[in-house]
Design a protein around this nucleic acid. Structure first.
Lengths: 236, 236
DNA sequence: CTGTCTACTCTTGTATACAAAAATATGTTT
DNA sequence: AAACATATTTTTGTATACAAGAGTAGACAG
């Protein structure tokens, strides 16, 4: 075999901008709770911590502000967004609607491959639930929902739903620690899958709304399980 | 009355950042069609045009990218976002859902003041429609929808719905030029208002979905009425 | 001792400078 | 003449420098 000199290097170049990396890192730190709501985000401080200049830090902060994860006030710097109980409720309300919409559309548009992917994801959830592995269920649950978004065949909806889910993930994490929550979640998935496989859009929509919505006791339980600093005391 | 020396100047300081101004200007230029989809956004060029340095230009571009109005590829600059027919359809689909949700929530949560505001906005629409004033109807319509968002009492939903409406406004503008579109729009508003006033959430939701959704002939008409350059020919 | 004014410091917002990657043009080879 | 390789130019990404507003602490008056 004679030598092959690649015309164009297929190896992905360092297609990496510092600003993007930073955005990612900070996003993770915020969502994981390492940076707490209300915490100040000093540009020079972050620059020093990450070993870069203020320029990429500022760019990262701007993007985080656009996604609502941080708040920037003119000439007063950025802080990790503080969320009131009301804010949280409203975001969950929208989340439920978007996910329900995904389910409705998926029931109509899903193809065999996607159908299989959802079934598989559901099975993985079942396994994780049976072995009482919260971490595994958390991940499998995410895959299940992602598969559903894909089935809706609406890239815009998929993108928005995903980013809202991401935004809320920090608050949802604690939900699974409730006794019986995993079993209930799984049962709700079951209902969604059944409706999906039957092609019943309305049933799928309702099942999903029920699954995602935070209503009745579920809401107060969710709030109560949150670490104190996650919520702002007074109204915005 | 003796002189009042205001302790703290109530006059709003130049709370203006160049980057924010630029974002606003560029947004307007894009939404108005002055900058066409696919058009290159050269940083130095924009800086020179607006008489500022590249720094605020970059910050403005980053924010526009976050809102989806422009697309930035690493080290290849920014272009006004190109939208395919499919993209457009998907965004309208989500729009219909969000507005329908607003209507449903508003039917349950609206207060007398908001009720009056919606009624008033509806009357203004009627007047504009009767006088065949497209510009006036366009504005009154916006006020009507805004009043509805407020009635839903969900700030997050309001924000997201408004920004999507804004994003689509460029494409919607041409819709009103269709013969009979104004009359039909007004009739649909009427249905929404009736359901709202009756407190019938389901009816309000359905009426609004019908109003906002672009279905059947309406969609092909919308597409056909768009100036050619508004849409990308091939798939993304 | 308290409240207000002022000077100072710190942080943000913007401009400029520099490095590296794309895009473009030029020249060479077959 | 076409295609490839190389040099040049242009543009983006990052760092640094500078200006101006916000926050802070200290001095002074009541």
């Amino acid at each position: 075999m004679h030598e092959v000199k690649p015309r164009v290097s297929k190896i992905k170049k360092d297609q990496t901008r510092l600003a993007e990396d930073l955005r990612c890192s900070l996003e993770t730190e915020i969502l994981s709770g390492l940076l707490l709501p209300g915490e100040r985000l000093d540009e020079s401080g972050l620059a020093k911590r990450f070993g870069v200049s203020r320029t990429p830090v500022r760019e990262a902060l701007l993007q985080l502000a656009s996604s609502g994860l941080i708040e920037m006030r003119p000439r007063q710097g950025a802080v990790v967004a503080t969320v009131t109980v009301q804010d949280l409720m409203q975001m969950f309300e929208v989340m439920a609607e978007l996910e329900a919409m995904c389910a409705r559309l998926a029931a109509r548009r899903i193809n065999p491959v996607e159908r299989a992917a959802i079934a598989a994801a559901h099975e993985t959830c079942k396994t994780a639930a049976r072995s009482q592995d919260l971490g595994a269920y958390y991940k499998a649950n995410r895959v299940f929902h992602e598969a559903l978004y894909a089935g809706a065949h609406n890239a815009y909806l998929q993108d928005k739903t995903r980013s809202l889910r991401n935004r809320l993930s920090a608050y949802r994490r604690y939900q699974l620690h409730q006794v019986g929550r995993v079993a209930r979640s799984l049962a709700e998935h079951e209902a969604v899958v059944e409706a999906l496989m039957a092609g019943d859009a309305e049933a799928a929509e309702n099942a999903m709304r029920t699954h995602v919505a935070i209503q009745g006791d579920v809401f107060s339980d969710l709030i109560s399980l949150l670490p104190p600093r996650y919520l702002q005391a007074a109204a915005k």
